[in-house]
């Protein structure tokens, strides 16, 4: 096989990479004066926009009750079968409530279908992206972790009203 010759052999200057180094240094210099995009996590945390789909949570009204009526539609629509709802009867006006509401965060794929299907606007995607657990059982979130006061979810609810 004949030895192929490169189209353009580098001259001595090129071989020393000097122009490239200078170009690189110039870029570095320029970037030093550009605004900073990297966050010093965990000291500084990212605050996502309202359209962000973090972990799904349950809306808790100011009086402490949840909005969910345990209709089970989110559990049915969830493509990953992450949600388990067990309904029970209450004396409140909406006769039904979830005695048990669990989302398996290892199954959830953050698609937002549950939020979309909910007839009560009871389950919404939050801004929470910090999901850490040490074993499978901890990854199943119960009502204690899922219920979030409505005041913390205003931005998302606003977003849904506008775009859903």
């Amino acid at each position: 096989m004949p030895v192929q010759k490169r189209k353009k052999d580098l001259n001595i200057f090129g071989k020393l990479y000097i122009p490239e180094i200078v170009k690189g240094m110039a870029l570095t210099l320029k970037s030093m004066f550009r605004p900073n995009v990297t966050l010093l996590y965990p000291e500084v945390r990212f605050d996502p926009p309202a359209s962000y789909r973090g972990r799904p949570v349950l809306v808790q009204e100011p009086n402490g009750t949840g909005r969910c009526v345990a209709c089970g539609l989110c559990a049915r629509v969830c493509p990953a079968l992450a949600i388990e709802v067990q309904a029970a009867e209450t004396e409140l006006e909406k006769e039904r409530y979830p005695q048990k509401f669990e989302i398996n965060m290892l199954r959830c794929i953050f698609c937002g279908f549950c939020e979309e299907v909910c007839p009560e606007e009871a389950i919404v995607m939050s801004k929470d992206y910090e999901l850490v657990f040490a074993n499978r059982n901890d990854a199943i979130y119960g009502k204690d972790k899922l219920l979030v006061p409505i005041d913390n979810l205003r931005a998302r609810l606003e977003f849904l009203r506008k775009f859903k």
Binding site: V69, A70, C71, L73, K94, E95, R96, P119, E120
Partner: peptide
């Protein structure tokens, strides 16, 4: 009532 109705 469908969301809270057993017949659904």
């Amino acid at each position: 009532d469908c969301p809270i109705c057993d017949e659904a």
